[in-house]
């Protein structure tokens, strides 16, 4: 009896479950205002457009699990996007796979610098990445002088049109399941596998739980830190090419000018249940967090909300859903205490 109770209460208090319920409720409300919302077509589109944010969110989640914070990822993305696309054009060859790889590697290398600084000087990660973010972006713009690029090779846009499968809906629209979404899912699986089944993954959680204990247990902290920060660099690089694929241009500000974007990614990760203090976080929760935020921002027109009300509505829903989550968390604490005693 008691055990059963415990199990149900655990399920009820699982972060992902709560988030899922909020998403469903929100979806149903929007759908009742405009039935276009819950159409497969719209859902697939949300999956596709959210894939860039989702990709970066995975990286941010990994960093946050290790109780760090990286705010240089948008700068890294901008740099790897600019350098990669330029370089491949200059070399006059390359294809989409190479682009993804090159951007990923450039991102990973830049991330390594973060990781090294964090490890070597034991500096707060926020400071390091705040610093390197202006260094990276500043160097890109002033030394490499990457200008705007509005025409990119065809393989980028070709990839954007590729779909894993397509079908025709009742009202005749052709709906495709984009490869960008597939890429996000693949990356999510990879992260899940790494976190769950490898020693590096355990090391990331261990550092987040207690870096001192991790050191004593014999984890190679340098390696793990380098892995964490080059991983977020890598996914930022990949995300930057996704950006080129979707929007067919290279822009030194759009990705970077996104202080909003950066904060949105961090908000999504935290909303997804990753603790700011490190140690906890799940892939599923992070994806839910990203989708939740995307659902909010991408249903305002459907709901017919005037533009000047947008910020109010987003702010309000954000506070509401985060508030519900925070409240539920404090409930869990009480619950644990009672079970314990």
């Amino acid at each position: 009896m008691q055990k059963q109770q415990q199990i149900t209460s655990k399920l009820l208090f699982r972060h992902e479950t709560i988030l899922f319920i909020i998403m469903i409720v929100f979806g149903v409300v929007v759908n009742s205002i405009n039935p276009a919302f819950l159409k497969v077509e719209n859902l697939f589109d949300i999956l596709k457009t959210s894939s860039i944010t989702g990709m970066m969110a995975l990286g941010v989640m990994v960093v946050m699990i290790s109780s760090g914070m990286d705010i240089s990822f948008t700068a890294i993305a901008t740099v790897s996007m600019g350098v990669t696309v330029r370089m491949l054009i200059a070399l006059d060859k390359g294809n989409i796979v190479v682009a993804f790889l090159v951007a990923g590697i450039i991102g990973a290398l830049l991330g390594c610098i973060n990781g090294f600084l964090v490890y070597r000087f034991k500096l707060p990660t926020l400071i390091v990445t705040l610093g390197t973010s202006s260094i990276f972006h500043g160097l890109l713009l002033s030394i490499l002088k990457i200008p705007y690029l509005y025409t990119v090779p065809g393989y980028y846009s070709d990839f954007s049109r590729l779909s894993l499968f397509t079908f025709t809906t009742a009202d005749g629209a052709v709906v495709g399941f984009s490869y960008l979404t597939v890429l996000l899912f693949v990356m999510a699986c990879v992260v899940w596998l790494i976190l769950r089944f490898t020693m590096v993954g355990r090391g990331i959680y261990a550092i987040g739980g207690s870096i001192e204990a991790a050191k004593r247990a014999g984890f190679n902290i340098l390696f793990i830190q380098l892995f964490i920060y080059s991983f977020i660099g890598f996914v930022s690089g990949v995300a930057s090419i996704e950006y080129v694929v979707m929007f067919r241009h290279v822009h030194p500000f759009n990705m970077m000018n996104m202080m909003n974007m950066m904060l949105n990614v961090i908000a999504a990760v935290v909303l997804g249940g990753t603790s700011i203090n490190g140690g906890t976080g799940t892939v599923l929760g992070t994806l839910f967090g990203v989708w939740m935020i995307y659902m909010i921002t991408n249903s305002l027109i459907l709901m017919g909300i005037p533009s000047e009300w947008e910020s109010v509505v987003i702010g309000f829903i954000l506070i509401l859903s985060i508030g519900v989550n925070a409240y539920q968390k404090s409930l869990r604490k009480v619950e644990v205490k009672i079970i314990e005693s």
Binding site: M199, R202, A206, S210, E212, A213, A214, R216, A217, F219
Partner: peptide
């Protein structure tokens, strides 16, 4: 104790040996 509060009992016990 140098334990990892965010990990399970089993993981905490096994981690050194695995390392």
């Amino acid at each position: 104790l140098s334990l990892f509060p965010n990990m399970t009992v089993a993981e905490n016990i096994a981690i050194n040996q695995l390392l």
